[in-house]
């Protein structure tokens, strides 16, 4: 059985993230890492691998600049078997439409019974990529799983929606996206870190997956950013100490002054 996990290399959310002059995200001036939300599908893939008697191969797939190989390395350290890094200058500035095309074409070249994704990235955080991938690959999609069960080609998930908790089922080949509620991701062990050094990572260009340069990149994006502006910083208002219970009265005064009472 083969599992492909799609992961993204993102700017560190705790760093000062900003835009370049062409309105793309600065991915080089800021330290990056494996998106925290993509550790969860890696974890779920590894748990399925550990539960199966048959051999399960977990391949980590990423699209991004050279540094994005860091994201693959982290997943290999956690226990994934091999990595594929699609890297091509022409991809820079692609929107989710272009990125989903690159991922889909790469996945088509890989054996895949299960395709797994996180719920969203921590930078763009549109949360649409799993649905777009499923659409492009023609796979059923079990999305936003907070629990994943796999048994002999059948996948069952729990999906906690806004109005109901659902059980959703499908059969392989199938795409599954998982939330941060699906189970804590493991830390790489020392053994895992050492073993990762010997695991194979392939680097593919656009021509390797049969995508032409004019299908991706900033200039062919289907939506256009017209302007980016830093939001004016909030100015700190009054902060009072609660002495002898005065805090509650002052809080009520404030709420009344803003007409909330």
């Amino acid at each position: 059985m083969n599992i492909v996990v799609c992961v993204k290399y993102v700017p560190d959310a705790t760093a000062d993230r900003h835009f370049e002059s062409d309105s793309t995200v600065d991915r080089e001036g800021v330290d990056g890492l494996l998106s925290e939300l993509d550790e969860y599908p890696v974890e779920q893939a590894l748990r399925i691998k550990e539960q199966q008697d048959d051999e399960v191969q977990v391949t980590v797939l990423t699209v991004g600049p050279d540094d994005a190989s860091d994201a693959i390395r982290k997943a290999l350290q956690m226990g994934a078997d091999k990595g594929v890094h699609v890297s091509d200058e022409a991809i820079a500035g692609s929107d989710s439409i272009g990125t989903s095309l690159v991922l889909a074409e790469a996945i088509k070249k890989l054996e895949h019974d299960l395709v797994m994704c996180g719920m969203a990235s921590t930078d763009g955080s549109m949360g649409v990529l799993p649905a777009m991938l499923a659409e492009r690959l023609g796979l059923p999609a079990l999305t936003l799983a907070s629990e994943v069960e796999y048994d002999a080609g059948r996948v069952r998930i729990r999906r906690d929606g806004d109005t109901a908790t659902q059980t959703v089922e499908g059969t392989t080949p199938v795409l599954v996206s998982v939330t941060d509620q699906s189970g804590e991701a493991r830390y790489p062990s020392f053994k895992g870190i050492m073993a990762a050094k010997k695991k194979p990572v392939e680097t593919w260009t656009l021509s390797d997956i049969g995508v032409s340069e004019d299908q991706v990149g900033l200039s062919t994006a289907w939506s256009q950013v017209m302007a980016t502006e830093p939001r004016p910083p909030r100015t700190q208002g009054e902060v009072v100490a609660d002495e002898d219970g005065s805090g509650a009265t002052k809080l009520a005064d404030f709420l009344a002054s803003r007409k909330f009472i």
Partner: peptide
């Protein structure tokens, strides 16, 4: 606190019940 329009440095378990009472009174 850097973002607030108004802040109270205190124990929420005493501030909130007192504030609830105050709001209901008003």
């Amino acid at each position: 606190f850097e973002l607030v329009d108004f802040g109270v440095v205190g124990d929420l378990h005493s501030v909130l019940p007192a504030a609830t009472e105050e709001v209901n009174k008003r």
